[in-house]
């Protein structure tokens, strides 16, 4: 039985449940920030808030990429590995090859786009299921990044596998990407995150392309029958996701100033969690860029607050997991009771 106009006529209880679902994350956010600020006034000052945003910027950027692949009905598990190998690639480019910022950044972004292209080739052309294809790519990249330096981290004065010593160094201009602030207040990574968020929000919500990306994820056949090229849309999504992951890697490299083999270990889990928490943010139950950014910031605020209250570092993953479970239960559990 289909009910006409169920939206307008649904009883009060259902509307309340929908409203709770739509705003629950924001209510929690306010409660949480107020709580932490009361317990620890230093929590709410601008410097701390900015450092929180800086801490979540990479996760938010990667999460936005995951969101795009979720929109086309796929999933990119390789982003963490792309980011990590981008850190290595950037360091290698500057320290071993002696390139500057203007060569390194485009090169690394190109590397990310290329990985996305290979992912898309596996998924679209060879029809490998998305999770398997990107999982395989994750393995491949995790291994690949160790080969050029024989497993060593990259810093100035690196001894190469052939015995010679690398002569290059990190370009000071490159380090500005991770370490400078605008007006001495807003760190550059936060500005980059904001730009990425705005561009991707407009792309997904306000453009024809975004509509088609979501249409692909919603109903591939319907999208094809409407005259769109589904392979091209999927390829675009994976290329975007790969490029954003390498952008994340660039920020990490510029902040750390060396190429650590272990960098980016938790990036995949954190950014996927941000994208999934994003489902709950407006109660949309589907991927959305705004939700992903809010999700990343939410986790950042929570972890920072707990750290300030002296919660030990080893509880962090547990807290993230609990937030994710809560968000998913909120998204899918509430509102299930309404008869369809």
């Amino acid at each position: 039985m289909t009910i006409i106009n169920s939206e307008n006529q649904s009883p009060l209880s259902e509307r309340i449940s929908a409203a709770v679902r739509a705003s629950a994350v924001f209510i929690l956010l306010i409660v949480m920030v107020t709580g932490f600020a009361l317990a620890q006034p230093a929590y709410i000052n601008v410097t701390n808030l900015m450092s929180i945003l800086q801490a979540v910027s990479v996760v938010a950027i990667l999460g936005a990429g995951v969101t795009i692949t979720l929109a086309v009905g796929g999933f990119d598990l390789s982003i963490g590995a792309v980011a990590a190998s981008s850190v290595m690639a950037a360091s290698y480019s500057m320290i071993v090859w002696g390139l500057g910022v203007y060569e390194t950044v485009p090169l690394v972004l190109l590397f990310g786009a290329l990985v996305g292209l290979v992912n898309a080739f596996l998924i679209v052309r060879l029809r490998v299921p998305d999770l398997l294809a990107t999982l395989a790519m994750m393995f491949l990249l995790t291994g690949l990044q160790l080969i050029p330096t024989a497993g060593r981290s990259i810093s100035a004065g690196l001894i190469l596998p052939d015995g010679s010593t690398a002569t290059g160094a990190y370009d000071p201009a490159f380090l500005l990407i991770g370490r400078s602030s605008f007006f001495g207040v807003v760190p550059a990574p936060v500005v980059i995150m904001a730009l990425v968020a705005i561009v991707l929000f407009v792309l997904t919500e306000r453009t024809r392309l975004g509509r088609l990306l979501f249409a692909t994820g919603g109903n591939e056949l319907a999208t094809r029958l409407a005259g769109a090229s589904v392979p091209r849309l999927k390829t675009l999504a994976y290329v975007l996701s790969g490029t954003l992951a390498s952008l994340g890697g660039i920020i990490v490299a510029a902040r750390v100033g060396r190429g650590d083999v272990s960098s980016g270990a938790s990036l995949l889990m954190d950014s996927v969690a941000a994208a999934l928490i994003g489902f709950a943010v407006l109660g949309l139950r589907c991927p959305n860029v705004f939700g992903t950014i809010v999700g990343a910031v939410f986790v950042g605020l929570l972890l920072n607050g707990l750290t300030m209250l002296n919660a030990p570092y080893y509880t962090q993953d547990f807290v993230k997991g609990a937030v994710l479970v809560g968000a998913l239960a909120l998204t899918y559990g509430l509102g299930r009771s309404q008869a369809r």
């Binding site: 509509r211 979501f214 919603g218 109903n219 319907a222 029958l225 589907c286």
Partner: peptide
């Protein structure tokens, strides 16, 4: 199967269905 988006997915309203 051939024309509509699943419920609650972006583009599952009347106007986007017509414009796709």
């Amino acid at each position: 199967r051939s024309s509509l988006m699943p419920a609650d997915w972006p583009g599952s309203n009347l106007a986007p269905t017509i414009s796709l």
